[in-house]
Design a protein around this nucleic acid. Sequence first.
DNA 1: ATACGAGATTTGTGATCACAAGAAACGAAG
DNA 2: CTTCGTTTCTTGTGATCACAAATCTCGTAT
Lengths: 236, 236
Amino acid sequence: MPLRRTSLETTTASGLPEFGRLDRATLQTQAYQQLRKAVMGGVFRPGTVITIRAAADALGTSPMPVRAALQRLEAEGALVARGSKRTLEIPNLSIEEYHELRDIRIVLEGLAAERAVANIEAAELQEVERNCRAMQEAADAGDREGYVRANWTFHLSIYRASHMESLVAMIEGLWLRVGPYVQLMMPDRKSMVASMPDHWHMVEALKQRDGRAASQAIADDISHSAVNLMKVLKHR
Amino acid sequence: MPLRRTSLETTTASGLPEFGRLDRATLQTQAYQQLRKAVMGGVFRPGTVITIRAAADALGTSPMPVRAALQRLEAEGALVARGSKRTLEIPNLSIEEYHELRDIRIVLEGLAAERAVANIEAAELQEVERNCRAMQEAADAGDREGYVRANWTFHLSIYRASHMESLVAMIEGLWLRVGPYVQLMMPDRKSMVASMPDHWHMVEALKQRDGRAASQAIADDISHSAVNLMKVLKHR
DNA sequence: ATACGAGATTTGTGATCACAAGAAACGAAG
DNA sequence: CTTCGTTTCTTGTGATCACAAATCTCGTAT
């Protein structure tokens, strides 16, 4: 679907301004968001090469906005310059690199959870619980794609409750980097269902206003996921 | 000084290849590094407006590489889009935003210090101690610019000893955002000298291989700096 | 004086083109 | 069949131009 940037001067000849279709965002922003969503969702396998012109064709624009989008993704570590520099690719994380990201995630997401406990409002807590139920349903149904999406929605709703904008942005950057692996971490229905207790612990900790328990539950979830991934990677 | 990208085909007519002065880096990379250094060093006051064309003139290149460099700095939060979108400026951090960055720094730099204790090698430890002495000298001399530079060198040498590349990169990103304020945090010789105990504690903790003490010393340093800054900002 | 609006200027965005250098395809020699 | 050098193709980089929209500048009206 070609990206389009609606001009502002689209007023109906007669009267009302006909609220623009709201892609007032620049093309490079749209390109960035689409690519980002794809990376986070695990659409690209590690090692996939992405070129400016190819992505531009796929998105239906000129290379220019895509160049900016890819450079930004590179700056965030979602893409890395290939071997001797020429093209970009989805990084193949070594075990050490993955463990490093895991440890960073534990302290950062732990901090967010702790602050969420302190700052969360009633409406936010209800939404967190709703998101957890949705994740439970996806897990029970063995719907991996739905589970991955629901999992991110759930975690994000907690982190946002910390009301720490920069922190949430940094966490998003980390998820972007582990995105290509999230599908792998949940190979079957069993592993999805097995992840749910950690998540319900988070909800419980939020209700009890227990910061320590909340960050512990986050740490457990991240650790368990990492163990899962190692098992899957070893297995082949 | 105009940026220049030496072409590879610079072989002397007679014989040896005359090792190119190595600015094989792209112009946008050079532009990024120069601007980054300036921001981290506190060259620009918060609120300073930076435009593509102006920066391009200053660096002596076309707008193109500078555009990429500025977009990257924006992605990292070192620059923010001004009011209604048009230009970029050095962010004016609110007290809440600054405290948020402080708290993130405490967990991230604390983690780095803890891991540095576990992984540091003899040569690295010597360099850390040397850097601390250099900072002490700058503090004693009341050399603020030298102190700020030495302070960053010292901290960086510790964090690098963690051998966690992504973590160091994220910490650098945070220092980039607080860069415009570091000069303000050390208004006089007294405050510089007063900061030294925390730093010597870090060295001591590294020597004793006490991870807890190391991360505590980091947290103290960051907290004290924040208090300092608040005092200065209140004062006017 | 102050508020408002039309015109001029500035600025980021996006398109297109040229080019150097990496990557791949190909062919000849051993 | 393998290896190495040459040619061709691909790809990121940077320059330049056009344009929409934000910002600034004044002059006019209230």
